[in-house]
Simulated assay, not measured.
Amino acid sequence: MLRWRGLDDIPADWGRCVVTIGVFDGVHRGHAQLITRAIRAAKERGVPAVLMTFDPHPAEVVRPGSHPPQLSTLTRRAELAEELGIDVFCVMPFTPILASQTPKDFAHEVLVERLHAQVVVVGDNFTFGKKAAGNVDTLRKFGERFGFEVEAVSLLGEHAVTLSSTYIRSCVDAGDVATATEALGRPHRVEGVVVRGDGRGSDLGFPTANIAPPMYSAIPADGVYAAWFTVLGAGPVVGQVEPGESYRAAVSVGTNPTFSGRTRTIEAYVLDTSADLYGQHVAVDFVARIRGQVKYDKVSNLIDQISADVDQTRLLLP
């Protein structure tokens, strides 16, 4: 799969293509419908399928300080798009200049002059251009004028629920990772680097990997979760596990109220391994919520509860 960082990476001799446009945060089941339709249209015409996404999130440029929690990193989005069969992953830097483009200028300069789009596939709620003035009907009018087709895909899922990143963020924020999984088509993932903590987990008999996620990551509500813990990249320490290895993990999200903590952390007790995980780039795939965050009067009660959480994790992730 080709990866372009902006329009300048497009070859001068680039031919026609089918393009699907959106932020694609999470590459959820609704996005998969768009991508699948774009790939099908591209194969029918014998041209490449291009996915165009934006970075940073448009909301942050239009309304600074309003960046929503991210369901996936750009790298993850590219991996998921490639798995679905996209030929080119194009990241458009979302700048104030791009935000100020009129719908007509975006359609002509980006879709026609640079991408040579033959078909444009979007969600039926798609908006574009300055102040989101353009919509699907606008795009169709420009398509008739400039020579490209437009296909709008409904993102409705089961029970008439719109499969949107906003909906999934609300599920994650509430700790409802099971419903988030249904909408995503896979468990919600948080990536990060394992950093040094205060060592309290080891003192309790349950040493944890403390994960520092990227800025804006969508973190589930405080509580304890059963999750898959996967090493994505090897760190600098000799003896660390190989990338791609996955383990079951009981993951605590919260402030450690039993110890009067104030900083919100993600701590994973990784089962069935004693590997050195410090410095590793890892992913936590949240499968099920076991319980909410609780403050215990006695440390012994907390230890008993952690032991029960581990047993529950083994049951949920056989």
Score class of each variant (00 low, 15 high):
Thr273Asp: 04
Arg186Leu: 02
Phe146Trp: 12
Val161Lys: 12
Ile266Tyr: 02
Asn256Ser: 15
Pro207Val: 10
Arg140Glu: 15
Ala268Thr: 12
Gly147Glu: 05
Asn210Trp: 07
Phe142Asp: 09
Gly223Cys: 01
Val231Phe: 15
Glu191Gly: 02
Pro236Gly: 09
Gly239Ile: 07
Cys171Glu: 07
Val150Asn: 11
Gly235Pro: 09
Gly197His: 10
Asp272Ala: 11
Val231Leu: 13
Thr166Ala: 15
Arg262Gly: 15
Val251Arg: 03
Arg262Val: 06
Ala174His: 00
Ala250Pro: 04
Ala212Lys: 05
Thr179Gly: 03
Pro214Gln: 04
Ala209His: 08
Phe142Cys: 10
Leu139Thr: 12
Pro213Arg: 14
Lys141Trp: 10
Asn135Leu: 13
Gly147Met: 08
Ala218Asp: 03
Glu182Asp: 13
Ala250His: 02
Met215Trp: 09
Tyr167Gln: 13
Ala183Pro: 01
Gly192Asp: 06
Val194Met: 13
Val231Tyr: 14
Glu149Pro: 00
Thr258His: 13
Ala250Ile: 01
Ala152Thr: 02
Gly199Tyr: 05
Tyr247Thr: 04
Asp222Gln: 01
Phe229Ser: 01
Leu156Asn: 10
Arg145Gln: 14
Gly134Thr: 07
Gly157Ala: 01
Ser154Leu: 12
Asp173Tyr: 06
Val253Gln: 02
Gly157Ser: 04
Gly233Ser: 13
Thr162Leu: 14
Glu149Asp: 10
Gly244Asn: 06
Pro220Gly: 04
Pro257Ala: 02
Tyr216Ala: 09
Tyr247Ile: 03
Asp176Val: 00
Thr255Ser: 11
Thr166Ile: 12
Ala226Tyr: 02
Ala268Ser: 15
Ser274Tyr: 11
Tyr216Gly: 02
Arg186Ser: 04
Ala275Trp: 10
Asn135Cys: 05
Gly175Cys: 09
Arg248Ser: 07
Val177Asn: 02
Ala268Gly: 05
Ser217Asn: 04
Val194Thr: 11
Thr138Lys: 03
His159Cys: 05
Pro236Ala: 11
Gly143Asp: 13
Glu245Ser: 14
Asp198Phe: 07
